[in-house]
Design a protein around this nucleic acid. Sequence first.
DNA 1: CGTGTTTGACCCGCGC
DNA 2: GCGCGGGTCAAACACG
Length: 326
Amino acid sequence: MDEQWATTGQQPSLSLGLTVGAVPMRRAAAPAATTRVLVEEDFMSVKKGNHEVEALEAELRRVGEENRRLGEMLRALVHKYADLQAKVTAMAAAAAVQAEANNNNHQQSSTTASEEGGGSAASPSRNKRVRSDDGSGAGAGFVTVAAVADHTECTSAAAAVKVNSGSKVSRRFVHADPADLSLVVKDGYQWRKYGQKVTKDNPCPRAYFRCSFAPACPVKKKVQRSADDKALLVATYEGDHNHAQPLATGTAAKNSASKPAPPLGLQEQQRKQQQEAAAMAAERETAERKNLAEQMAATLTRDPGFKAALVSALSGRILELSPANN
DNA sequence: CGTGTTTGACCCGCGC
DNA sequence: GCGCGGGTCAAACACG
Ligand SMILES: [Zn+2]
């Protein structure tokens, strides 16, 4: 986690000429503004054409233009934010992978910082439960269907890091709200939670899910928050789905390119992560585009000055129009 | 009333 | 054998 994030470079080209004062503008403003202007023009031609109308018209256009610029700015901001966040996620994931590799290679205990969370869910008084069926080798390791196609379907949305250590286990790191306790990773499949345990070296509990879309789907996944970064959900998938993905996760842009490059260098890996992260950023931006209007509206309405100006303008306009409309 | 989640109990491998 | 820790089961519960 160096200062690599400085590589986001792309200096903020947000230098849109945001004008607080007067600005030269063209007629091409927001469509709504244009429409409104036309109406106004029509109305005014019937009534009377004084200079005030023109001034108001110009003001309206100016405001429309400024609104458009603000929209662009906000959009660019959102995009950059998503991009940055994606990169952060990817790098955190890479760091986690690296740390785990180190742990695997060198035994753990590198991070002694976090306090011992060992809540020990197992209560001391355990009743003898008569389970006729018994069996069902729990810890015997899930058999997991034979390694069919290597098409590791879980490469959809978020910045995914496939550790693919040996066989069909894949690991992915998603970014989630730390306050969100749901511990649910939306990846396009249907999961049924069947267990939750607190683990030894992580105060956050680990949740166990089973794919419930197909009755015989052997896929399981474990979701646990990262110990250091609680905004990072680590999901471990096991097995391959024996059915199609029931829910497209938005971007159907499956990079159909085969990936015949198992020995990816770390840099390559990170690059790939960044690519996926960028994809996620784009998707996120698309998703958040819908909220753009709401965000802008909220931002604007939060500004008392704007509200006051809007109220005054509207009241004036309404007062002016009401006698004609009636 | 069916379905999914919660949660304590249980199983099992592993190290001592 | 015993304790520990991770994984799973299933009764109880919540929710529509
Ligand atoms: Zn499945």
